[in-house]
Design a protein around this nucleic acid. Sequence first.
DNA 1: GTGTCTCTACGGAAGACCGG
DNA 2: CCGGTCTTCCGTAGAGACAC
Length: 237
Amino acid sequence: IEGLGEKHISAFWQDGLIRQPGDIFRLKTRLDDIAEREGWGEISATKLIAAIDERRRIPLDRFINALGIPQVGQATARLLARHYRSLAHWRGEMEAAQDPESPARAHLLDVHGIGADMAADIIGFFAEPHNRAVLDDLAREVTVLDYEAPAQASQSPLAGKTIVFTGGLEAMSRSEAKARAEALGANVASSVSAKTDYVVIGADAGSKAAKAAALGVTTLDEAAWLELAGLAPAEAG
DNA sequence: GTGTCTCTACGGAAGACCGG
DNA sequence: CCGGTCTTCCGTAGAGACAC
């Protein structure tokens, strides 16, 4: 939520404006209280409420990521979203998995990338009544969108390739580049290894560029990346 | 206009997990 | 066990927003 960072969350919590995540989406009724706060005003309070409303619809993977389950970050959240498709289904499975004998538990472990340790953390999250209550409450305020498989361009030269970005890019942000690469069927990794196919070197690249060179991984400059991604701008001159 | 604050966007690295 | 990844944390810098 734009404009709602750690500091504000923590201050709101201390002053009792919010007690649990769902409360954020009910701040609308406290607009005047917010506007009167020190450092705030009518404009910022109104903008905050608008920014909150813009986040009422949220993709499943981001929702899972936001739960803060230990070991479940961006990548694992997406893994889960891809596998379970909807919040209702996932939650149903995780609650069924409370029973150690349940097939739901076996299914979770079948997900490539989820091992016993992560499964225990995930199932453990749903074992907490408090967490389930928070989810119930949040569900009343937000709409979690079912996972949509990205349409894959299997023709793309990037299909099936593992790519790593490092350094700053000019034409697009890192996250845009990542989204683009994934849309083209590439796997975007966060560190360079021998299995990496391409490393895109942006401005002020750090050790990843050196590692790519050491491992003999193909490196691309931004122009080459844009061309590979089918985004090549008209070459100057 | 000024000053403060937050957010965003990076890099780097440690530690831990997964799968083979 | 080990290579490959991912999560998590820390640090930095800059841009932008807004109260005052």
